[in-house]
Design a protein around this nucleic acid. Sequence first.
DNA 1: CTTCATTTGTTCGTATGTATC
DNA 2: CGATACATACGAACAAATGAA
Lengths: 241, 241
Amino acid sequence: MNDLVEVPNSELRMRRSTTAEQIKRLILTSGLRAGDPIPTETELCQELGVSRSSVREAIRRLATLDIVEVRHGHGTVVGQMSLAPLVETLVFRGVLSPGDDLAALREVVDMRCALDMALSDRVVSVHKGKNNPTLLDLVDRMLAHAEAERPFLIEDRQFHNELLLPVGNQLAVQLVTAFWDIHTAVLPKLDLALPSDLRQTAKAHGDLYRSAQQGDAEAYRRAVVDHYEPLLRMLRVKSRP
Amino acid sequence: MNDLVEVPNSELRMRRSTTAEQIKRLILTSGLRAGDPIPTETELCQELGVSRSSVREAIRRLATLDIVEVRHGHGTVVGQMSLAPLVETLVFRGVLSPGDDLAALREVVDMRCALDMALSDRVVSVHKGKNNPTLLDLVDRMLAHAEAERPFLIEDRQFHNELLLPVGNQLAVQLVTAFWDIHTAVLPKLDLALPSDLRQTAKAHGDLYRSAQQGDAEAYRRAVVDHYEPLLRMLRVKSRP
DNA sequence: CTTCATTTGTTCGTATGTATC
DNA sequence: CGATACATACGAACAAATGAA
């Protein structure tokens, strides 16, 4: 009965899951870069031969991955391909807390620490003997905020960003920043008392930069451990009731 | 004519960007886990008070992030929240090669190496003195394939997976696997001769496991460097014409 | 094996909000 | 201010896949 039905299925399968793929290929073959505009929805409908809704869902998919960026009333441009999707996925996994209490968050902090350790030699070598006013200023502001008993999330995030920027690996910077985002997004959603060792945390950042500037890799790695140790200890305690 | 339409605008604004958020909240408040079914599209339309198209686009977004998984003709279930979105984003960034030749791929391989180095102590400690038949078998098969001049991607991927599994950090395993996927997906799409030092690569894997088993962290780290060195060298050469 | 209900996939038409000129 | 182009949203209809009766 259905012997004669020639590949109606695979035909659809080829298209269904690949409307987004076709748009990606179009971006590649057109040599577009981040920020360049891509064809409008109606143009894509004609070029790809699919309906408006399909194009919209495909664009939604690509926008979710930050491969394109939709600007309401203006158009769609090629995106920055950031790690935003990674952040959203892992934040949700963290707040879902799959039975194992805090395991997801602990793994995120664990990886932050591991990344900092892995990059320690390079961080130290690029900052050795140099003076970075931005980092010095950030450390000062963190110390001031700590004295005033106020948090300093913005400075914290920017500090880690600036510290890794000169190593020359964009992906590394983005990964560290992404895990920072995940960490700070998940932590408040779980109703546990924040450590709030503000002074200790601010001081740890100062130690990080100072040891890097002095070219002391061992001291830098000790500062990394000090930086995460209170938080990791709290997570371990909380997760073993 | 439309004077009676009360606040259609702000109402829409509130909902527009949060249809996906509402579904996420529904998953959380319902205490659903990976694999559990979520309401059907029509049910979500009623519960959230939006059209089917909006629900579909929201679900598409969540499916892209692997927060849900859609099964045609069956329904939608909570997803695994894997790192698939990270892989797709970075693969595309890799093949887009933004002017800087091979820089994206080089950074990915660089991060693979950094992750392996960061986890070296833990890998060595969990394998020290133990016998893992799976890893031994994988090394044997890689050596056999190398002798027969055939690639062994499947064994390679599984080797790194098995090697890191016992460290107890799911995220670390997934990150390493994700970067492996990105690396092997991007490399063939750039038309450059693969190194194809099959024997050397197979031998490097044997060295990795052997040094871990013997508890020699220094030897393990040397094996990591040997494992990536040919590829990194090729990338550096190719990118500086 | 067939039939049927359920669910997702695709398409079309229409109306509305939004940004640019 | 209007005009145009674009994205956003909704609803209805039909196609395709799945699973159970």
